[in-house]
Amino acid sequence: MDALLQFIFSGMTVGAVYALVALGFTIIYNASDVVNFAQGEFVMLGGMITVFAHQAGMPLPLAAAMAVVAAAGGGVALNRLAIEPARSAPVVSLIIITIGASILIRGAARLIFDKQLHRLPSFSGDTPIRIMGATILPQSLWVMGGAVAVFIGLWLFFSRTLTGKAVLATANNRIAAQLVGINTRWIMTLSFGLSAAIGALAGVLVTPITLVSYDVGVALALKGFAAAMLGGMGNPRGALLGGILLGLLESMTAGYLSSQYKDAVAFIVILAVLFVMPQGIFGKKPVERV
């Protein structure tokens, strides 16, 4: 019994990491139909910048805030320099562009920072919390809390604010959105900045658990992408649920079946879900215009 609870804690921790990355995908996707494969690099930047600023003597909260702002700037730059100029390019070209951006950012991080692994101190210490024979680290609660907070924030943003609705309108029909007076260019800038900021925040929260180095972005983006697709791309609820589900799947497989094939089981479940629900669990069915 306490083993089951331990597996659930582990799955929730890992799942919250995936969910935070997956949530970052949603805004850009909602505004532009682009899946930003460089999202993992913003997570890396969040971790790396915080580590180096903290080492240089900056207090942790300030270092983290700086990392989030810097990453947001990177997101805006990515949009201005690489995505906007290629507006009319086909989807596969946009995939290549964001993958190119991810390679570029990684290469730059390697030069600017270093190739070593780094860690941040846990926010509330390392004393495990014991619940019915199972344990969980306080930092896990920070990550889970972060995922839920970002989710609520996004949900309010998209459903309650005019700007959020403008983002959705832009995704739906860019020209119509412009016609009703929405500054779509500003919306795109905002979306990339926000997505990158969420990614960087994720990086700050997870670094005490997962450690950070210049090349952690790819694996995180891959899992986050899979989680977002599982839940249904573009839907914050789907991102949160997809992430947690993926994390639980992995920990349950590692706990009860085989740790070697835990990632395999996760991907088999994703494939199976997509076969039954081709738009993910919460996705909407798009209509092809002829």
């Binding site: 331990q6 597996f7 804690f9 582990s10 921790t13 890992v14 990491v17 344990t135 997870v206 658990i209 997962t210 952690v216 694996a219 995180l220 920990s251 349950m252 590692a254 706990g255 740790s259």
Partner: peptide, 8 residues
């Protein structure tokens, strides 16, 4: 690249 090994 795993983040948590408590199940194992």
């Amino acid at each position: 690249q795993d983040a948590d090994m408590t199940p194992q």
